[in-house]
Design a protein around this nucleic acid. Structure first.
Lengths: 235, 235
DNA sequence: TCACCTGGATAGCTGAGCTATCCATAAAAT
DNA sequence: ATTTTATGGATAGCTCAGCTATCCAGGTGA
């Protein structure tokens, strides 16, 4: 199909498609002549991914570009896991918050702690350590000057538990297919990434609700049920 | 103190302070004459809150305005819990994603389910139900057309567990003081809100790391440790 | 032949979040 | 008492992200 057709089918304006191509997040069409190119279903899928990441997940274009770059690169391991990691690389302009040396020290500590967890792999590209260290630095600046890195451990346990819950309770079993063929990857990747972001948002809402309720319960001296209390049946 | 002094002490430019006053998130100074006003420490604290919410938490000004409006309003219950709830009210322009009637039905279902939880209060201002419903609608649109509302239950349990972990492991005990006097509230509120947002961010990073690692472990057929596995001691 | 389409280039638009300038007036300094 | 400085209010402009629109010379298909 050609550009106009791609625009029609995807619902994305011609000019926006060209913009995405310019930005490198959508591959250019297969050139037929100096000013003629054809696009395939892969372009449609990529467009759907970009739009979903932008509009549904609210990711910035910079992050979307990183994810698609990861998808377009060759893979050694699991492309979906890699793409999920790519979402994580910190935005370029977020550096230089406070002391760079302090940040690096903290990052190393966080990294060490993460490696001690039973579930991390030996992966070197642990962007999250950088993000966590950055946020931790802010925690120390704004809240608790001596907040220890080790205090992350219980949070990490809960995070792994949450991941287990999400994977097990996903309809139709685990979201992520085992060793799919390269060309079957676009759709599962879209679903995995979107699922990750959407459920993160839902969980964040639940989490803030829980914090609010806990705060209100404490302040109003209502009972504060323990975490293992059974849920009442709704209605 | 007067405007120039407030600007100097807070590090926020005069023009930006005026902008915040215009936007209603910073109260105007006490007028001494037609063009003379004095500002107190409350203005400094409010400025610190605004900047922290913007720069640290990355909240949009619209949300910051809601939080400060909540703080400036009279309170019946716990102002901190209220402020945390205020963070939650959905941004104005996020409506009209798909069917409004469907959304309302879903919101009611979510609300019903939340009320069945052991830890919610009878609060009517459950903005989170709206946000969750909206995201759930997207989950159904983009991932699982029949995703049941009841599948939120295990997530809600984890959210409450996380809130317990956060409150118990906060250095110096619970972050939220019980029934503080009205004028002592600015600083604890800042800490509670910032803490909530910062730890949410840290947890989100851990969560994405956990999801990535789980995906990679499944795909590479590495062992996937259960959630109750003990953490190895780091180093 | 000729209306229509193409890729590439470039310019413009919108909204968020500031930032800068002007101005009439009031306070402070001399 | 007069100059200097600061003030609040108004208004305009700036930067960045993320598009969107227009122009153009060169092809396509009827």
């Amino acid at each position: 199909m050609r550009l106009a057709e791609l625009a029609r089918q995807s619902g994305v304006p011609r000019s926006t498609i060209k913009f995405y191509i310019r930005e490198g997040m959508l591959p250019a069409g297969e050139p037929r002549a100096r000013n003629q190119a054809t696009y395939g279903p892969a372009h449609l899928e990529r467009l759907a991914l970009i739009r979903a990441l932008r509009e549904v997940a609210g990711l910035r274009l910079e992050v979307v570009a990183r994810v698609t770059a990861q998808l377009d690169r060759g893979f050694d391991g699991d492309p979906i896991g890699e793409a999920l990691l790519a979402i994580h690389a910190p935005a370029t302009s977020e550096r230089a918050k406070g002391d760079a040396a302090e940040l690096e020290k903290l990052r190393a500590e966080v990294y060490e702690l993460m490696r001690g967890l039973p579930w991390t792999t030996g992966d070197e590209r642990h962007f999250f350590a950088e993000e966590i260290a950055g946020t931790l630095l802010q925690v120390r600046q704004y809240l608790y000057p001596d907040y220890p890195v080790a205090a992350l451990l219980p949070l990490a346990r809960v995070a792994w538990l949450l991941s287990e819950v999400e994977f097990e309770h996903a309809p139709g079993g685990p979201r992520v297919p085992l060793r799919a063929r390269r060309d079957d990857l676009a759709e599962p990747t879209r679903r995995a990434i979107l699922g990750s972001v959407l459920f993160e948002r839902i969980f964040a809402a639940l989490h803030r609700a829980a914090n609010s309720m806990r705060s209100i319960r404490i302040s109003e001296e209502l009972p504060v049920p323990p975490a293992d209390a059974p849920a009442k049946e709704p209605r």
